[in-house]
Design a protein around this nucleic acid. Structure first.
Length: 317
DNA sequence: GCAACATCGC
DNA sequence: ATTGACCCGA
DNA sequence: TCGGGTCAATGCGATGTTGC
């Protein structure tokens, strides 16, 4: 057999702070969908992180990858750009989740994609996972053609802090640190690869909570608009809250006033099996999130801490 | 045609 | 995607 | 004790499916 069955990709562990190291190189973390390209003898196929096939979704990439030598497996991220010329996750999902061929072919022209390639797993029909990263990168540089649709991801040596500051300044997703001599570990998270994400911060206020089967599941978070003196719902939050904190919140909600009116002028819609309960906006809460979504919700929100403070200081900024 | 739900990308 | 709880082994 | 690994919760938002 020339090439293996689809492989689960190597993945990074989380790292809170950027660092400098002579043993690591650093790359921009491109915000898109993970994709491995298998260049078999007679065909090219794409598979994502969970081994779901994505060959049909990106015909222009297939055409291009067909010009490469056979017996190769590439690893990278498929992205699209928004109006601001920054990677736009939501747009690439349109391409990635499309199933009907009519939809796919319409989207090809309206939502152009790019394949940001950062690794090679097989070369000349043989595994190269045991070669050090720097060697794999050399192979990549030799085989990748010049083409606007694909780009090999740039690396900087040693200075991760500087690259992270650039990512922050440019509002990119973050950076990935990679040990220069490390092998490619299939399907695992190891500290050979470490991601450091750029997080946005805010202090919001709790305007309610959701329950499922009578138990608290998440908090309904809002911000105060100083211009019209109204609270705006900006998303749910649950990640980051410990059991003890949930217990304390439950006690607080039981002791606080019931029958509270909806504090938000834009309350969210309930989803299946959920109930919403509203409280006076008085508990402030520090959150981190990746970015605002189009309708002003937090993407990937997480609770950092609860804080004393005036809810009217929980404003948009 | 629409709304609710499931699934899946992060 | 995120976290927390939990188990396990060094 | 610390780090890994697993498991199960949760977030937003996109499409596809189903049922009416």
């Amino acid at each position: 057999m020339l090439l293996p069955a689809p492989l689960k990709p190597m993945e990074p562990i989380n790292q809170a702070m950027p660092f400098d190291s002579d043993n690591y190189l650093f790359q921009i973390k491109w915000d898109g969908v993970r994709c491995l390209a298998y260049i078999y003898k007679n065909e090219v196929r794409l598979f994502n992180r969970k081994l779901n096939e994505r060959t049909k979704q990106y015909p222009e990439l297939i055409t291009l990858l067909n010009t490469l030598p056979k017996g190769i497996v590439l690893d990278g991220e498929i992205i699209t750009l928004g109006e601001d010329m920054k990677p736009n996750f939501r747009r690439v999902l349109k391409r990635d989740l499309a199933k009907s061929s009519t939809k796919i072919s319409n989207l090809i022209h309206r939502v152009p994609v790019f394949y940001m390639i950062f690794d090679i797993v097989y070369f000349e029909g043989k595994s190269v996972i045991d070669k050090p990263l720097l060697e794999r990168q050399k192979i990549l540089a030799q085989i990748l053609p010049e083409n606007p649709l694909i780009k090999s991801v740039d690396s900087v040596h040693h200075n991760g802090i500087n690259l992270f500051e650039i990512a922050e300044r440019e509002s990119l997703e973050g950076i990935v640190a990679k040990e220069m001599n490390s092998p490619y570990i299939i399907g695992e998270k190891t500290s050979y690869w470490q991601k450091i994400k750029v997080w946005q911060k805010l202090t919001g206020v709790i305007g309610g909570y959701s329950t499922k089967m009578g138990e608290i599941r998440s908090l309904l978070i809002g911000l105060y608009n100083e211009e019209n003196k109204l609270f705006y719902y900006i998303g749910n939050a649950s990640s980051g809250i410990s059991h003890n904190q949930w217990k304390a919140l439950q006690q607080y909600f039981e002791s606080s006033a019931k029958d509270t009116k909806i504090p938000f002028i834009n309350p969210p819609k309930k989803s299946k099996g959920e109930e919403y309960y509203w409280v006076n906006p008085e508990i402030c809460i520090e959150l981190e999130y990746m970015e605002w979504t189009e309708d002003f919700r937090m993407r990937n929100p997480k609770v950092i801490d609860f804080s004393e403070g005036n809810p009217r200081d929980c404003v948009f900024s």
